[in-house]
Simulated assay, not measured.
Amino acid sequence: MTDDQLLRYSRHILLDEVGIEGQERVLAAHALIIGAGGLGSPAALYLASAGVGRITLVDDDVVDLTNLQRQIAHTTARVGTPKVQSAAQAMADINPEVQVTALQARVDAAALDSLVRDATVVLDCSDNYATRQAVNAACVRHHKPLVAGAVIQFDGQITVVDPRDAQSPCYACIFPPDAEFEEVRCSTMGVFAPLVGVVGAMQAAEALKLIAGVGQSLEGRLLMLDGRAMEWNTMRVQRHADCPVCVAR
Rank of each mutant, 00 (worst) to 15 (best):
D4S: 14
R8F: 12
S10Y: 09
R11Y: 11
I13T: 06
I13V: 14
L15W: 10
E17Y: 10
G19P: 07
Q23R: 00
R25L: 07
H30D: 02
A31G: 09
L32W: 08
I34K: 01
G37H: 12
G38P: 03
P42W: 03
A43E: 03
L45F: 14
A50M: 11
I55Y: 04
V58R: 11
D61I: 02
V62W: 04
V63G: 02
L68D: 05
Q69D: 00
I72T: 11
I72W: 11
A73H: 08
T76P: 00
T76Y: 11
R78V: 11
R78C: 14
R78K: 15
G80D: 06
G80R: 01
T81Q: 05
P82H: 06
P82M: 06
Q85T: 10
A92D: 01
D93K: 09
E97D: 15
L103E: 13
L103P: 13
Q104S: 15
A105H: 15
V107K: 09
D108F: 13
A111Y: 08
A111T: 13
L112F: 14
D113C: 02
R117Y: 12
A119V: 03
V122R: 04
L123E: 04
L123F: 13
D124P: 02
C125W: 05
C125M: 06
C125Y: 05
S126H: 03
S126V: 03
N128G: 14
T131S: 09
R132H: 12
R132D: 02
Q133P: 01
V147C: 02
A150T: 06
A150Y: 06
I152V: 07
I152K: 01
I152E: 01
Q153L: 05
F154V: 02
F154D: 03
G156I: 00
Q157I: 00
I158G: 00
V161K: 05
D165S: 12
D165F: 13
Q167H: 14
Q167T: 15
S168G: 08
S168Q: 01
P169L: 04
C170K: 10
A172S: 15
C173N: 05
C173E: 00
P176H: 10
E182V: 15
E183S: 13
R185M: 05
T188M: 01
V191G: 05
A193W: 10
P194R: 06
V196Q: 07
G197W: 04
V199Y: 08
G200K: 00
A201Q: 04
A204V: 09
A205W: 01
A205V: 00
L208I: 06
L210Y: 10
V214I: 14
G215L: 08
G215Y: 13
E219N: 12
G220F: 07
L222W: 10
L222Q: 08
L222D: 07
L225R: 09
D226L: 10
A229M: 05
W232F: 15
W232C: 04
N233L: 09
R236L: 04
V237L: 02
R239Q: 15
R239E: 12
V245T: 05
V247L: 08
A248R: 09
R249A: 07
